[in-house]
Design a protein around this nucleic acid. Structure first.
Lengths: 351, 351
DNA sequence: CTGAAAGCGCTTACAG
DNA sequence: CTGAAAGCGCTTACAG
């Protein structure tokens, strides 16, 4: 008996044509039936649906995208997924956009402008329907690319006013902290800012000055340090402040990382918080419910919570709405912060 | 003077045809020049490249994908981006696959089988080139979908032997912990397992028994609790263990969450670690360098570190290699763990 | 209500 | 070395 090579039925995915043949109809009719758009005889519609199910038909998003020029995908840029701020924001974005059938391309820029440009270019190549930029300072080239790109929503930093933007209420946050410190008797208060290329960082610094004035306090310029959001800049700032006479009794940091750097440095030279000096952060980066626990919790940094999940959700909504109204004016969503009093602030030390 | 409506040059992206026209050549030649495949006259090649740059041409990944059936995208499934274990693994995967031109679709399954199926279906619809499943217990339907899908690499859990798999050395990790506890004089040791649907959880439990025997210790079945990796199960287990006489002097937890639950419960009933009882975790979920700081650090859980970033990298490599060799046999990469002795373990209490 | 046809923007044998 | 042509799998006016 001669062996015969049985042609293995190709495992390729079925297409509209396969269903059309099976049903004795045209591709057009099948497409209309499956998409639910346009008229199709009811019985045929049923037949088509059954056949599609039986063959395991799934419409090719690629082919559809090529035809319709919409991909149902969105790009999200963050600095670093291992920075605990960002996962929460991303989760919020995801909740909203994925419920609308969009899938997320997530990329880390590591604060590197070159990477940012490369990633945006890659997203444009993929024709994402929209982009969310989380805490990104835009490179000039990125800005240029975006001009011809899809809608973009900015979270925490924006290149200029008028774009779709979501951010925490930085002014209110600073006020909460200053009011808290003022209530503890602090008057000589230092500030470590973030980088000036961050709009949020600029807002926080500007409002520090405004709010100090409103409290009737003077800002000693030797007690304002231009940091960069990283721990090391907090340490350097603290070192500089300790050389100023009289020393500050409290230090406001532009974010939690900086605050940790400050506390770390103070500790290294034998000063304690809040006994010797009070320190506050901003962001409440460790507020994930997963990380809470009664016994083993992160030692308490007094800070201001930014509602990360909600910021993400708001950004997702803004983006979806923007997709439906490309020419509407830019919108701004500012979400309130909350004071979290923990263990790095206390009454001013009696000199 | 009559106003004339100047037709606004459409901002649509330039295509091969635009370049071909501009250069007086065919699309085919332009495509070959730009892709670098096939022969093109050197001068023409230059002309084409210049023209492409001038027009800002970028090849449409969608059109290419439709033609070549490769998308240069990969899907990554995790349970929850806000669980600090996963970002590090994702980062490792990203480092490898993005350097190869792949972009990542990242999705949260929230341990929900329905979501898992929906996400995998969506990834298949998008024809991703590959999938990485991180800590996923596969739903039957997912498994079925994957049979006709692209290559898939499994991290931490695998549906069966023989698939591409990357995981920590669970046996070695358990041994490190038991040896450590044994050295502190502990003999009566309890274990809180993870869910039995997790291959990694099963390995840890199985090796707990093996390793206890190897140490010459007996396993009291009343001191083995079937947990589920969540904190609450740690609390319940601890409660149960405290009702057993004699009580255990040490408790091994299948992961850090469970350990936190145990410590929390013990603390709530007035018992302290390690004075009254020793507790260990697994994973070292808080080991991000971003979270380290001298002064404000996570209170110390003794645990075993799994090299998350490296696990991710290994998974990325396995996937890329698999794309180049679809029919090669499945491979397994097991990475060593490291003991992290902190403050929840101590010498057994003299009864 | 249905089908023929064009077209989205590429890639790739194939013939020359 | 180059170009004509087919085809990836859809969607969508358009004519009937």
């Amino acid at each position: 008996m001669v062996e015969r090579v049985v042609p293995i039925p190709s495992a390729r995915r079925p297409t509209l044509i396969d269903i059309a043949r099976e049903c004795g109809l045209s591709r057009a009719t099948v497409a209309r039936a499956l998409s639910g758009k346009g008229y199709v005889d009811l019985d045929r519609r049923r037949l088509i649906q059954e056949t599609a199910d039986r063959l395991g038909y799934r419409t090719s998003t690629i082919a559809r995208a090529l035809r319709t020029q919409r991909t149902s995908s969105v790009g999200v840029l963050i600095a670093d997924i291992t920075n605990p701020i960002f996962p929460q924001i991303v989760k919020g974005i995801d909740e909203i956009v994925s419920s609308d059938g969009h899938t997320i391309f997530l990329s880390n820029t590591d604060e590197d402008p070159q990477k940012q440009v490369a990633i945006v270019r890659s997203l444009l190549d993929r024709q994402v329907d929209g982009i969310v930029m989380v805490s990104q300072t835009l490179a000039d080239e990125t800005l240029k690319l975006l001009e011809h790109g899809p809608p973009c929503v900015f979270v925490n930093r924006r290149p200029y006013e008028g774009v779709d933007y979501v951010g925490p209420d930085n002014e209110q946050g600073i006020e909460l902290l200053l009011t808290h410190l003022r209530g503890l008797g602090h008057q000589r208060i230092a500030y470590v800012s973030g980088p000036s290329h961050s709009s949020t960082s600029r807002e926080r610094l500007a409002h520090f000055r405004v709010s100090m004035a409103a409290c009737g306090l003077e800002v000693d310029e030797r007690l304002v340090f231009a940091g960069n959001y990283y721990k090391e800049s907090g340490a350097k700032a603290a070192e500089a402040f300790m050389a100023v006479t009289p020393r500050p009794t409290a230090i406001l940091a532009a974010n939690d990382f900086v605050a940790l750097g400050i506390v770390g440095y103070l500790h290294s030279i034998g000063l304690n918080t809040p006994a010797d000096i009070s320190v506050t952060g901003f962001d409440d980066m460790f507020d994930s419910s997963l990380m809470e626990t009664e016994a083993l919790k992160v030692e308490g940094l007094t800070t201001v919570n930014q509602p990360k999940r909600h910021l993400g959700r708001a950004a997702g909504k803004l983006l979806l709405e923007r997709l439906g109204a490309p020419d509407a004016p830019g919108r701004k969503v500012i979400l309130p912060t909350e004071l979290r009093i923990r263990h790095t602030t206390g009454p001013v030390r009696k000199g």
